[in-house]
Every structure is written in structure tokens, then in C-alpha cells.
Design a protein around this nucleic acid. Structure first.
Length: 967
RNA sequence: GGGCGGUUAGCUCAGCGGUAGAGCACUACGUUGACAUCGUAGUGGCCACUGGUUCGAUCCCAGUACCGCCCA
């Protein structure tokens, strides 16, 4: 056997992945010891429309590390795969596909035929991301792949499963407990998809907008036939009057003039003295045909901010969430103006009839009741798009001179004549607007009938579970976010006006009574003799993903998996779905099975580009993990993401980082290759492979201790979810200890009396290193494992080491650190004095204590080789020599007559200055009486010892300097 | 406006009571039995600012500035 010069990731990864799959290596319980504890993770289900992005790569790498780590410890591991059906996104993908194929739009399809099309699409293209996860090396139990729509009516063969049953069962259960209800509420409406969406699916973005200022004339007093007037008074902070005028109008500001048509009131703050005289009076909405102008009341409410705009706010309860609240509090009717596409309504009563009824309501002559039939859109605006209607309203009001105006002065450049003009006051200013996160269109608040989960009723157990530690969220700061959201929770809109999803299991009879049951037959049994119609809406996808932990394990059946793996151990996820998903899973699992879904939640950051910018298609800075895998291999990508996964930090990723870690893979590969070339893995004695050697030589004893330290640090880091520490610790051990020192130390030993034990030790250390690295870099380690011995199982099922401090030999440790220090000292002195790297120098022992002599005697050949010196001999420092100090010893290196005394003096003085600076700091501390009085005695002792060491070091350097000067 | 973070070497980040570390980058040297995807040595920091607590603060506390993110 001989190894190639580098690891060929491209060919090896496919081969190894196939071998794992053939061996069923990731199946639940694979490699489990008898009686081992269970460890389970459910994957955050990617959208069925999704493909692997860098966030998935991070998320699944971290899960895979935990899973492989536990599996190698012999635990009973399940990593549950699956996808969610992504209602809106999937429907959108298939609608687009049909359009591209020249087929009719969805509304012209039969519902069943359309969902059949989606199922067809799902079976052809829905598995993309699963294949991509395999390329990443994710060790999910593929045989258990789940889907949030499995088992739904109409699902094709191969999509049988319990998920639909679970979802329906939970809905019925929660309905029966009064936790789900239907009601007419203001919800976020997506005019593109023509469906309600939850507030979490709305993105608020600041966009350039306009604020118009309009005058609402006060009503005409029927007694006098004149418009009402009032004294409008403005005062400064000291109460001095700054403006006083008589007005017959109230001025309001709005960013949405088209909604004026549906105004139900004008509101001012109760403390606002400017408008106190007219609260309770009526004013006129200044749009629409003159003969149908409506009067609305001026009311007082806490909502308006007196300092904002004019301080008066128009109230359109059916089209704004804040206004809705004001309308509810004050009994103001909610007039709907828009249809489901975001155009002005053209249904309902005529505008004349509507205006008449609305007028009666405003004057208190009629109870508001259900105002759904009232359509206050004037005839000539019916059917207009919302933005067209806005232009029309603004133009009409301005033409009528009811816009608030300012005097615009223009001086003619040629004639110098002044031209004065009244212009409408329009502030161009950024406004926050809601957008649908899927459609990208502006969301409309709409008054519609929807289904809600009464979240305030089920939220407390989810809060308590984290409060009392049954579920732990890491990093801790996210607990605050979690609590804050749950403590201020709003009802959750769960109905969607879509076809792709779990249809709501509620039927209505002729009178609109509701019958909720798991099937039509059962609903019919509840309503004997009545004709039932099923609610056409489907459930929010997150309602089903909320049941992911129990649903994937077979609930509502009482399966062995559910008993074995639930609650799951750890959920690994991004902070962006703490609300969407984590909090809802907590609420729902607790509501349905009375148990937390997971014990730990590890929240990782968002992968950014190397400059720290969010990746986005529009910025063009998206990094495709598959490109990186193609270019460098999956292991370097995984290692890079892991080493950047510091808790609470966003990884900043660039290709050069991955390249650097590809070099790390090459480094391990070549260390192994070196070992292999030196017969390290050749024919071990029977039974010797994998057995821990018991070497005598300090070098071998030392590296075993370092291996144990690495193992302790690694397990500690992984147990604390400090993935970056795990990766960086292994990097330091493999590169800094194993390759830089141990391999170099071993070279001379291969020819001596310790050759046998050195080969055995090196074989063991490399085996340990790849075992420990396997969870982070599964491919290259599996390959090395196969190349370096006859194995009875793959490394994916390798035995996780359990050794620790007992392998650390203090004596070997001290001695090798001394040797390393000496070699570094000699190298440093040589380099600074410009001694050619190839030149071999004498090593003169000027002075040495017993320990130093023993260390030197035991490791002579190592020092000679790595410091490039001849065997040490006793002697005096003298002309042409440079000085090197090591603990308990000083050395001199003759570098010939050409020694640059000045350079050597500079070098030593620099070293001395450093030492003295450190020493004086310590001395200052020790001489401070308060330190002596208050500090821990142990600390004082340590400080003294450190100072003594520094003093000794300084004295040695000073001696060398003196000698240099005397020559 | 409310909340949560961050500010440490040129860059990316660790450290979080005892006077600062890593990787990358940079400089010089170098093909010594695996590795140039490499080796050796080095340069580089008022640990954002201002106070406080403490024998001692990069670390704890309070405030300020700037930069992010989330929610209004």
C-alpha cells in the first residue's frame, strides 16, 4: 500500500458515502451498546422547495457532529430527517411551472387535480435537498424520511405516513378544548396569493412614501346653516400662545388617502387642548361625490400622538391595525374598501345606499351591526387598483382646495417677477410598510373570517418549561427573546386561503353551525340529517411543523420510537425561527402530549460573507456550499463552519477560509502518509492494532499525554456546545503538537532502540486523532481509517476514547517542554544572528542543573536534529559565541569569528528588557502592602515563584551580556 | 421608541479578575527523511471612551459614543 500525495475528496467522498449507506450506518440505534442511553435530534425540516444553502450547511454540520459523537460513544442515536410542505412556497412553484408549460392558472383547475399536480412535482423534484445533505456527509437515518403532508388525502403511494392524522387529531383536540376558534378579525392579507398570513410572515421595511395633509370640514350646524367653527390655539413649551385662528376644519395627516373613503371617525388625544372644543362634534370626509359626503364623529382616544403631524388621526378600522383598536374601543364601524386582490370593492350595496346607511350610523340613528354589505367606494372608483384610487383621491381633494397648502414663491429669472402659488403640503418621508415575505407585495390589513389558535391560553407551560430549566436555550440571551415574545403573544392566525396544505377539519351545516371531527363521517354523525360543507381553508404550514417532534416519531400511535426518543435531546436551529418554530413547538407539544419537545436548544448564528454582510441574491454575495464542496471537499467546509460556530456569533465565511482548512486536511493526510512510509502501520503483531501502547521513551509518553489532553478538551467543548473550541483545539493538537513536534521527534527514533514502540505509539496517536476528528471531518478520517489497518468496522462506528489524565506523565511533560523550549531558543538565536539554516553548530553547556542535564541526556539526538547542533559538550562561553538560556541551564553556541557583537548585544538586551519588564511588574505587585494583605496566599506564592524564575532568567542573560562586553 | 448583542494585533475572532492569545495576512530566511496545500524565525495591541467597585479591571458595575440585529 502506498498513499497518494493528497486526499482526493471528490472521488473518496462519493465512495465513502455509498459505503455508509450500504452498511446502513446511520440507522436509528446503529452502533448502540446494550442498555445505552438514547440521543435524538430532529432536523429542522427544510422546505420541500428548498435547495441547500450555506445556512443549512452550518445547521446540519453541527447536528451531524453531535450525532456522530454520540453514535461513536455507543449511544442509541436517532437523527430524524424530513421536509415540510411549505404551503405558499410550493403552491407558488407549481403555479409558475404550470404557467411555464402554458397550462391554465390555478383558479381554473379543480382543487383535487391541482394538488395532484403538486404531489407529482414533489415526487419528481422534492428530494433535491436530501441528496445535497448527503454530500455534506449528514448522517441522518434516511429510512425514516418524514414529510409534513404525508398521509393526506390524495397522497400518492410512497407518501403514506401519519403526519396528516397527527395534524388533524391535534386540531380536533384543540378545537374541543376551546383552544382554536374562528372569528372575524383584522389579519394580514396577501393580495397576491389572496390568503391570510401570520404576522411573522410579514416583513416590515422602510420605503420612501408620502404624507398628505387634508382638511376635514366641520359639519354644518342645522340650526344656523353655517359651518361650525372653533378657536384653534397653539402654544409653545412655556404656554405662550404662538398661533390663534378661527377654523372651520380639522387637519389630519395620512399616508393612505384612499382609505379615507372608509373612515369611521377622527381621533384626537384626550389631553390635546387644541381640539377639546370640537370633540363630540361631526366633521365631513372630503372625498366622493358632494351629495354623498359623509359625516363622522371627532372622538378622544389615547392612541393619537399630539406631537405627531396635526395631532389628529383619521380612523379606518377595517384597514389599519392601530385604527382597528381605536374603532373597537369606541364602537366605530369597520367599513371594508378593498377586495381580496387589493382593488377597490365593487360588490355590496350601491355607493348611494351605502353612504346613506353610514350617515345614519354616524348620527346615531342606526346600530352599526354587520356593515359588510356597505361599500363606501364611489361608483367611479369601484374596481380600481388601490394605488390608482390613491392618486384619484389626492387629485380630487387638491382640486377642491381641501388639501393643506403652503405658499410657494418663485422668482422669474428673466423678468425678476415674483410668482406666488399655493401648493398642497406633501411630506416625502420614509414610511414603514408591511410586505409579504413570499409574495413581496404590500400586505393589507383585512377584515376576514379566519381560524385562530388561542395562544394566550397555551403559552404559560412553554414559558415555565424554559424558566425552570426543563428546556435550556443556548446562548442564554435568546431566552430573553423567547420570553419577551411569549409574554406578549397574539392569537395565531392558522387558516390560509390555499389549496396545498391540511384542509381544516370543520364542516358547516346550512345554518353555518360548525362541526369539527377527524373525518366527514364523524362530522356527519355529529349533525344527523344536515347537509355539510367543509371549510375550504388549509392550515398554516407552521401548524404542522409545530408537531414535528412527535409527528415524526409516529404520534398519535404509541410507537416504540416515541417512547425511546421523545423528548428529543437537542434542537439545533437559527435564531430567525425561534418564534416561527421553536416557541410554537414548545407550546404545541406541551399542549398535546404535556411534555417538552427537546431538552436543549442550540441557536447558531447566521452565516455572512467575509465582510460580514448578510448573503442575498440581490447583493450577489451568496456562497453556494455545493460549490465549496466541489472545490475543496465536504470536510474542509464542515471544519470551517465548525471552527467559526462560536456561541452567539455570526460566522463570516469566505472561500479562503475553506481553502486554509483544506490545507489542514492535507496536513493530516501527509502526516499519515509519512507514518505509512516508515512502516508504522505495517503488520502489527496479532491483536496489537487499536491497543493502547505502553511506551518507555519520554517522547512517546509525552505525546500520549497530549492526546489525552486533546480528548478531554474536545469532549468538554462538545458537551458545552462550544463547537469552535472543539475544532480549534483539534487543529492545535494535530498541527501544533502531532505534526510540528511529535513527527519530527520520531524521525530519529525510527532508527534507534525505541523504534518499535515509537511506531506503535505513532499508529495509536494517528488513530486517536482521526477518531476524534471524525465527527467534524467524517470523510478523510474514514478514508485514513481504512488505509491504515485491517478494520472490522468503519470509523463511523468507531469507539470514542475515554482515557484522560491517567495518560499524562508529568515527568515526560516537563522534560519535553524543556526540550521544545531549548530548541526554540537555539532556532531563534540562530535566526536572529543570521546563521545559515544549514550550518551545524556546537552546543556548549555553560551551566546546567541536574534536571536540565537529564533532559538533555535523554533527548540529545532530538535536540541535535531539530536545533541543528552537534552533541552537547561542557565548556565556557567565549569569543564568537551566542548565548541561549533554558530553565536551569545556559548554553553557548560558537558561530565563528565573524560574530556581530553589536547584533548579539542588541538581541540579548531586548530579551533582558522583556524579562525585566515582566519582573518589575510582579515586584511592584508584591511590594504593595495592600496586595500582601488582601490577595489569596496561593496567588502571592505563585507570584513569588514566577518572579524568582524571571530573576534567574534575567541574571543569566545579564551574565551573557557581561561576557560579551568583556571579550 | 422598546429590547438584545458587539467594539481586543492589518483582517477574522478567542479570552472575561492576576499586566494579552490563535488563525489568516505581512516581513526575512529555508526544499532538513510526510506535507510549498510546506518549514523556521519575526513584526504587530493606551483590549472604543469616561467614571465606579477592587490590593489589582480587557474581564465586574454605571454611563457615553459608534456598529449590528429583533420588535414597534
Amino acid at each position: 500500500m502506498s498513499m497518494d500525495k493528497t486526499f482526493d475528496a471528490a472521488s473518496a467522498e462519493a465512495r465513502i458515502a455509498a459505503a455508509w449507506e450500504a452498511a446502513d450506518a446511520f440507522a436509528a440505534g446503529a452502533n448502540a451498546r446494550a442498555g445505552a442511553p438514547a440521543f435524538s435530534i430532529v432536523i429542522p425540516p427544510p422546505n420541500v422547495t428548498g435547495s441547500l444553502h450555506i445556512g443549512h450547511a452550518l445547521n446540519n454540520t453541527l447536528q451531524d457532529i453531535l450525532v456522530r459523537w454520540h453514535r461513536m460513544q455507543g449511544h442509541d442515536v436517532l437523527w430524524q430527517p424530513g421536509q415540510d410542505h411549505a404551503g405558499i412556497a410550493t403552491q407558488m412553484v407549481v403555479e409558475r411551472k404550470l404557467a411555464a408549460e402554458g397550462k391554465p392558472p390555478r383558479r381554473e383547475w379543480d382543487r383535487k387535480d391541482f394538488t395532484d399536480e403538486i404531489w407529482k412535482w414533489k415526487q419528481e423534484s422534492g428530494g433535491t435537498i436530501m441528496g445535497q445533505l448527503k454530500r455534506l456527509g449528514a448522517s441522518l437515518d434516511w429510512s425514516r424520511n418524514a414529510f409534513t403532508m404525508s398521509g393526506a388525502p390524495g397522497s400518492p403511494p410512497g407518501e403514506e405516513g401519519n403526519f396528516h392524522d397527527a395534524v388533524i387529531r391535534v386540531f380536533v383536540d384543540m378545537y374541543d378544548k376551546g383552544l382554536i376558534y374562528r372569528g372575524k378579525r383584522l389579519v394580514n392579507w396577501d393580495p397576491h396569493f389572496e390568503t391570510a398570513i401570520s404576522d411573522l410572515e410579514v416583513e416590515n421595511r422602510e420605503v420612501p412614501g408620502h404624507m398628505w395633509h387634508f382638511k376635514y370640514p366641520l359639519a354644518v350646524n342645522p340650526d344656523t346653516g353655517e359651518r361650525e367653527t372653533y378657536d384653534y390655539v397653539e402654544r409653545d413649551a412655556d404656554g405662550n400662545v404662538t398661533l390663534r385662528e378661527t377654523r372651520d376644519y380639522i387637519s389630519i395627516a395620512t399616508t393612505r388617502p384612499e382609505t379615507m373613503l372608509g373612515d369611521g371617525a377622527v381621533a384626537v388625544h384626550p389631553s390635546d387642548a387644541r381640539y377639546a372644543p370640537i370633540v363630540g362634534k361631526l366633521c365631513e370626509i372630503p372625498v366622493g361625490p358632494k351629495e354623498h359626503r359623509r359625516l363622522i364623529p371627532i372622538i378622544a382616544d389615547e392612541y393619537p400622538d399630539p406631537d405627531f403631524g396635526s395631532g389628529a388621526v383619521k380612523i379606518t378600522g377595517a384597514h389599519d391595525f392601530n385604527d382597528y383598536g381605536v374603532a373597537q374601543r369606541n364602537g366605530i364601524p369597520l367599513y371594508t374598501l378593498l377586495d381580496s386582490k387589493g382593488a377597490m370593492r365593487s360588490d355590496g350595496l350601491s355607493s348611494e345606499e351605502s353612504a346613506r346607511l353610514a350617515g345614519e350610523i354616524a348620527r346615531g340613528e342606526r346600530e352599526p351591526g354587520d356593515v359588510g354589505q356597505i361599500n363606501l367606494v364611489p361608483d367611479d372608483m369601484r374596481g380600481l387598483d388601490r394605488y390608482e384610487a390613491r392618486k384619484r383621491v389626492v387629485a380630487d381633494i387638491t382640486a377642491e382646495r381641501l388639501a393643506v397648502t403652503y405658499l410657494h414663491k418663485e422668482i422669474d429669472r428673466e423678468t425678476g417677477a415674483e410668482h406666488l402659488e399655493l401648493r398642497p403640503l406633501v411630506d416625502a418621508k420614509p414610511i414603514m410598510q408591511p410586505f409579504g415575505d413570499r409574495s413581496g407585495v404590500v400586505i393589507e390589513p383585512m377584515l376576514t373570517d379566519q381560524w385562530f389558535v388561542d395562544t394566550p391560553k397555551i403559552v404559560q407551560p412553554a414559558i415555565d418549561a424554559v424558566r425552570d430549566g426543563r428546556t435550556r436555550i443556548m446562548p442564554e440571551q435568546h431566552e430573553k427573546v423567547y420570553f419577551h415574545w411569549l409574554e406578549n403573544i397574539e392569537p395565531w392566525t392558522i387558516s390560509r386561503q390555499l389549496w396545498w396544505g391540511h384542509q381544516i377539519p370543520v364542516w358547516y351545516d346550512e345554518d353555518g353551525n360548525q362541526f369539527c371531527a377527524v373525518s366527514e363521517a364523524e362530522a356527519q354523525a355529529l349533525a344527523p340529517g344536515r347537509t355539510l360543507t367543509r371549510d375550504p381553508d388549509v392550515l398554516d404550514t407552521w401548524f404542522s411543523s409545530g408537531l414535528w417532534p412527535i409527528g415524526t416519531l409516529g404520534w398519535p400511535e404509541d410507537t416504540p420510537e416515541l417512547r425511546r426518543y421523545f423528548p428529543t435531546d437537542t434542537l439545533v436551529t437559527g435564531f430567525d425561527i425561534i418564534f416561527f418554530w421553536v416557541a410554537r413547538m414548545m407550546m404545541m407539544q406541551l399542549a398535546v402530549v404535556g411534555e417538552v419537545p427537546f431538552r436543549n436548544v442550540y441557536v447558531h448564528g447566521l452565516v455572512r460573507d467575509e465582510k460580514g454582510a448578510k448573503m442575498s441574491k440581490s447583493k450577489g454575495n451568496v456562497i453556494d456550499p455545493l460549490d465549496l464542496i466541489d472545490q475543496f471537499g465536504a470536510d474542509p467546509l464542515r471544519f470551517t463552519l465548525t471552527s467559526m460556530a462560536a456561541m452567539g456569533r455570526d460566522p463570516k465565511l469566505g472561500p479562503k477560509h475553506v481553502e486554509a482548512n483544506r490545507n489542514f486536511v492535507t496536513k493530516i493526510w501527509n502526516a499519515t502518509r509519512f507514518a505509512e512510509m516508515n512502516g508504522v502501520f505495517a503488520a502489527p503483531a496479532p491483536g496489537q492494532a487499536g491497543v493502547r501502547p505502553q511506551p518507555q521513551h519520554t517522547v512517546n509518553r509525552w505525546i500520549m499525554g497530549e492526546t489525552a489532553r486533546a480528548r478531554l478538551a474536545l469532549d468538554e467543548a462538545l458537551a458545552a456546545y462550544r463547537f469552535n473550541d472543539a475544532a480549534q483545539g483539534m487543529y492545535g493538537f494535530v498541527w501544533g503538537k502531532l505534526c510540528d513536534w511529535y513527527v519530527e521527534f520520531a524521525k530519529p527514533l525510527f532508527d534507534g532502540e525505541h523504534a518499535g514502540e515509537t511506531r506503535a505509539t505513532m499508529a495509536w496517536v494517528i488513530e486517536q486523532a482521526i477518531t476524534m476528528l471524525h465527527p467534524i471531518m467524517p470523510f478523510v478520517t474514514e478514508e485514513i481509517w481504512a488505509l491504515t489497518g485491517e478494520r472490522d468496522k468503519m470509523l463511523v462506528h468507531g469507539d470514542w476514547p475515554g482515557y484522560g489524565a491517567e495518560l499524562i506523565d508529568e515527568h515526560a511533560d516537563r522534560q519535553m517542554n524543556w526540550v521544545i523550549g531549548l530548541i526554540e531558543g537555539v532556532r531563534s538565536a540562530r535566526a536572529q544572528m543570521g546563521v545559515p539554516a544549514g550550518a551545524k553548530l556546537d552546543l556548549v553547556v555553560v551551566q546546567a542543573d541536574d534536571a536540565a542535564r537529564a533532559a538533555l541526556a535523554a533527548n540529545g539526538p532530538l535536540v541535535e536534529r531539530l536545533a541543528r547542533v552537534n552533541p552537547a559538550r561542557d565548556g565556557e562561553a567565549g569569543r564568537g559565541m551566542i548565548s541561549v538560556a533554558a530553565p536551569g541551564a545556559s548554553f553557548a553556541l560558537p558561530i565563528g569569528d565573524v560574530i556581530d557583537a553589536a547584533a548579539e548585544t542588541t538581541r540579548l538586551e531586548k530579551a533582558l528588557a522583556r524579562t525585566e519588564k515582566d519582573a518589575s511588574g510582579l515586584r511592584g505587585r508584591l511590594s504593595n502592602p495592600k496586595f500582601a494583605r488582601n490577595a489569596d496566599p496561593e496567588v502571592i506564592e505563585e507570584t513569588r515563584a514566577k518572579l524568582a524564575e524571571l530573576d534567574e532568567d534575567a541574571a543569566r542573560t545579564r551574565g551573557a551580556l557581561e561576557q560579551l562586553r568583556s571579550l
